[in-house]
Amino acid sequence: MQGLKVQSVSKEDFNKWVQETQKTSPKLTKEQYDQLMLQGHAAEMTFSSTHLEWVNHVNDPEYAIRVRERLGQLPKGTVDSNGKLPDENSMDKSMKNHTGSH
Rank of each mutant, 00 (worst) to 15 (best):
Q7Y: 12
S94H: 10
A42Y: 13
G77C: 09
I65Y: 05
V79D: 01
M1T: 05
K76G: 08
M45Y: 12
K96T: 14
T21K: 15
K93V: 07
N56V: 12
S90V: 04
Q22I: 10
L38H: 07
T21Y: 01
W17D: 08
L85A: 04
K27P: 03
L85F: 01
G72T: 11
V58N: 00
W54A: 05
T24W: 02
K84T: 02
V58Q: 00
G77F: 09
Y63P: 05
S90R: 14
T29G: 02
W17A: 03
S25N: 11
Q22K: 10
H98K: 03
A43Y: 15
H102M: 05
S8I: 09
Q32I: 15
S10Q: 09
F14D: 04
Q19N: 10
M95R: 00
H57T: 14
K5Y: 15
H41R: 13
T24K: 15
S81K: 13
K23D: 06
K5Q: 14
D13N: 10
K27I: 01
L85N: 04
D87G: 12
G100F: 11
K11V: 06
S94F: 11
S10R: 06
P61N: 06
H98D: 13
R66C: 06
G72Y: 03
L85W: 02
V6C: 08
N97T: 13
P61W: 04
N56A: 02
M37L: 15
E44V: 14
K16S: 07
R68W: 05
S101N: 06
E12P: 11
T24I: 03
K16Q: 12
M45Q: 15
L74C: 07
L28P: 00
K76I: 13
K11N: 13
T46G: 03
V6P: 03
S25P: 01
N56C: 02
L71Y: 10
V55C: 06
S48K: 05
Q35V: 14
G100P: 05
K96I: 03
N15I: 08
T29S: 07
Y63D: 01
N15C: 04
L38F: 10
H57S: 06
G72K: 09
K23C: 01
Q73K: 12
W17V: 08
Q19M: 11
E88L: 09
W17E: 11
T46K: 13
D60N: 07
L74V: 12
E69T: 09
T21F: 01
Q2A: 10
T24G: 00
D87T: 08
D87F: 08
V18N: 05
T46E: 15
V55Q: 03
G100Q: 04
S49T: 12
E12Q: 08
Q73T: 13
N59T: 08
D13M: 01
L38T: 11
A43S: 15
S8A: 10
N89F: 10
F47D: 05
L74Q: 07
H41K: 14
S94W: 13
L38K: 14
I65E: 01
Q35M: 15
D92F: 07
K11D: 11
H102G: 09
